[in-house]
Amino acid sequence: MAKTLTHSKEQLVRQALTQMQGSLADNTWSVREKLALTCRILFEHGHDSGLAGQISARGPQPGTFYTQQLGLGFDEICASNLLLVNEDLEVLEGQGMPNPANRFHSWVYRARPDVNCIIHTHPTHVAALSMLEVPLQVSHMDLCPLYEDCAFLAAWPGVPVGNEEGEIISQALGDKRAILLSHHGQLSTGTSVEQACVYAQLIERAARLQLLAMSAGTVKPISPELGREAHDWIDRPKRHAAAFAYYARQSLRGHADCLN
């Protein structure tokens, strides 16, 4: 005999969250390994655009962060070839140099103490949408972690190698988790590497769906109340960790070397 068919939605949500806490395992990879996995995951999901884009995570000391070295593609990043740099992009550990565009990461980290990982890429559908100078429209349940959580920078400030671009981008991001940058790409953040990776995956899918929907008609908005409800339901550390682990399992089938 079923016991939950008369439960309220609130009761069922609480029950599910309790089950998630006990059933979904935490990831045990190091920060370096998570970053390497993120590079390979995003490479496999359309975020590759040559040497463009940077992925970083806070380092062991304040004012430091890990990132990839300039000259390597996302599919070549390993835990062992990541760099540890300071806010001036001076290399503290590793060989080579970081992408000079990493400068704006320092500005975001300074403005947002809650951010521990930054992913900036130029995936195809995000880049195409950015050329239209229109904001991201979150109008599908799966994309709701981005609901009211994706900022928009309408004016392109140029290549982000100066401090001016760091100020502009960090201010435009505000307290949001992600931002669509006109004529440029996307930036996703997270309190964890897992969360940032999931957001980066979502924003590219959202851009693709928006372009498809716009080609067929007018995108219809969802109810703000339900959008916020779905945002909070999906945007959970345990769910992000589980999603990241799934993407990692996919990626490791062809990229096992990234954990070297």
Rank of each mutant, 00 (worst) to 15 (best):
T28E: 12
A248Q: 05
G59L: 15
I203R: 07
I222Q: 06
A127K: 10
L12I: 08
Q195T: 07
E44V: 04
V13G: 08
P224T: 11
V193Y: 02
P123G: 10
H255A: 09
S215A: 14
R177V: 07
I118Q: 00
N86H: 04
S8W: 07
A79Y: 01
S80D: 12
S251K: 05
N86T: 05
A213I: 01
Q11P: 07
C150D: 01
L83S: 05
M214I: 04
R32V: 12
D232L: 11
I77H: 01
P62G: 12
S30K: 09
W156S: 08
W156I: 03
I119R: 08
K238S: 08
I169C: 04
V138M: 06
A241R: 02
Y109M: 14
L12V: 09
R177W: 15
Q186T: 09
M214P: 02
R103D: 00
S188G: 14
P100C: 01
C78D: 06
V108M: 11
D75L: 04
G158N: 07
V219G: 04
T191S: 11
E87M: 04
G94F: 03
I203F: 10
E225G: 02
L92K: 04
Y109T: 09
N86D: 13
E165M: 00
I234H: 03
K220A: 15
V126A: 13
Q68S: 12
C197Y: 03
N116E: 12
M141N: 14
G158W: 11
A155M: 15
H47D: 10
R177H: 14
R40T: 10
E165Y: 05
E44R: 14
E10M: 11
P221T: 11
H45Q: 03
C197Q: 01
L129S: 04
L209R: 07
L136R: 12
T4K: 15
T64S: 08
A230F: 11
G166F: 05
H45Y: 00
L42K: 11
G50V: 11
Y109L: 13
A52R: 08
S49Q: 14
L92T: 06
E148W: 08
C150Q: 02
C39H: 14
L143A: 09
D88A: 13
W156L: 04
T4C: 13
M1H: 12
V31F: 00
L143S: 06
L146N: 00
V134E: 13
W29G: 01
G217H: 09
P224C: 12
Y199A: 02
P160H: 06
M141R: 14
P237Y: 03
A2W: 09
D149P: 02
L5A: 14
V31C: 01
L24C: 14
W233H: 13
G190N: 00
Q195M: 08
A213F: 07
N102V: 07
S251F: 05
V126T: 10
E33T: 03
S106K: 01
